[in-house]
C-alpha cells in the first residue's frame, strides 16, 4: 500500500477516536489497529513511524508505540 494511503487510513481512525469522550484515544486507536489491521499493515505503519512518521496524526504515533509494547509483552 502506498504510504499516503496508509497514512490517510490511520489518520481517519485517529480522527474518529479523537472525537470520543475520555482521554484514552491512543489506546482505542491501538486497539482498533490491532483488531482490524493485518500484521503486515501494522509492520508498514511501524516502519513509517520509524522513518519519521511523516503525515501521521500524533495520536497514531502514540498508538503505534502502544501496539509495539503490547506485541512485545504478548
Amino acid at each position: 500500500m502506498s504510504p499516503e494511503k496508509m497514512v490517510r487510513m490511520a489518520n481517519q481512525i485517529a480522527i474518529f477516536f479523537k472525537t470520543q469522550p475520555g482521554d484514552d484515544a491512543a489506546e482505542k486507536i491501538a486497539q482498533h489497529l490491532s483488531d482490524f489491521w493485518e500484521p503486515r499493515m501494522r509492520d508498514q505503519l511501524h516502519a513509517h513511524v520509524d522513518a519519521g512518521g511523516a503525515g501521521l496524526d500524533p495520536l497514531v504515533i502514540a498508538a503505534d508505540a502502544r501496539i509495539r509494547t503490547t506485541t512485545a509483552e504478548g
Binding site: 483488531d35 482490524f36 493485518e38
Partner: peptide
C-alpha cells in the same frame, strides 16, 4: 490469532 487481510488490503 491475528486478523487477516481485507479485500482492499
Amino acid at each position: 490469532p491475528e486478523p487477516g487481510l481485507r479485500i482492499p488490503n
